[in-house]
Simulated scan of single mutants.
Amino acid sequence: MTKTPNPLSVLAADPQGRSLGLALPPGTVIDGPGRRFARRSPLVWVSDEPVGPGALAVHRGPAGAAGLQAVLFQGRRGLESWWTRGELRPREMSAPDDHHVEPVLRAYWAGVVPDPEEGAEGAELIAPFGREWPGLAEPGVPDGDPEEQAVARADELIREGVLPSPRLALIPAARGADAPTAMGWRGPLNHENDTARVSTVLRSWEDRYGARVLALGFDELHLSVAAPPATRAAALPVAAEHFAFCPDNVWQGSGSVHAYADEAVVGARTWGFWWD
């Protein structure tokens, strides 16, 4: 079987990617833990300087046609260029095709729900659900093109200061949900050390809610949502999935699944996750 060439390899000799139909700003190709491109397995291309609103709108379509997923990388104080610090470990990941969303989320739920000994306080945290996994939430109906909404939401996150100095990043992957696994991102390490399982959930949200990966930080993930739940009743099962996927959003955020549904899911056009 002929192996499909990694399109990032082209950028070593063609930095602006013109042969791929791109017109990139100056950037660097990273091939492994913290190293610049030196072998034949580049993981990600990252712009050398921050980009502003409109960057994804310009580059996302051409990048997709070249077999690359365009997203934003955001650093934070002390971790301004986390993608160069040996944090990318694709060889430690399985493949998203190895997993199914229902058992992945069921296992996450079982690992984060309170013990019965916690009594009323623990029950209140996950109400109206119990310790048994409640099942997948019903899909939504996008009210517009998910890709168009994705670039609009990305611009909003930049303007609102959620992403104050993002870099443009290109990752070789067939779909956005697979990009974190393809590059070996380890943001949820304290909750999940196999990012392929994270991508499995992201694939399902792509399909059910028109979600798209917008940005990655050291331990943060931002998605656009084209079909957000419009009511509390529809949002609660989605909030349960979020709690299973990223419990810190509730434990160190809203304080309960019910409050989280009201604050972060009903009508929300972006979903943000962070793992402590």
Rank of each mutant, 00 (worst) to 15 (best):
P237W: 01
I171N: 08
Y209P: 00
G253D: 05
G144H: 07
P26V: 10
G75N: 03
A95R: 11
N190F: 04
L72A: 01
V238S: 02
R153A: 15
H59L: 09
R77D: 11
L11Y: 04
S9C: 11
G52W: 02
G64A: 10
S224M: 13
A152N: 09
E121M: 07
A240T: 07
P128F: 04
A173F: 01
G17T: 15
Q74G: 05
M93Y: 11
A235I: 12
T2H: 06
A259S: 06
A239F: 09
L221T: 04
P7A: 11
S199Y: 03
L105C: 14
L236P: 03
L8T: 08
E156F: 07
P228F: 09
P15T: 10
P15Y: 11
L24E: 05
A259H: 02
G111F: 04
D276W: 01
L22W: 12
W82I: 04
V213H: 01
S81A: 10
R91F: 08
A23Q: 12
G34W: 04
E102R: 13
P166D: 12
G75W: 07
W274D: 10
R175E: 15
P103R: 05
D276V: 11
D145C: 15
L216D: 06
V213G: 01
V46P: 00
P229V: 07
H222Q: 10
S41F: 02
A264Q: 12
E138Q: 12
R159F: 00
R77K: 15
H191F: 13
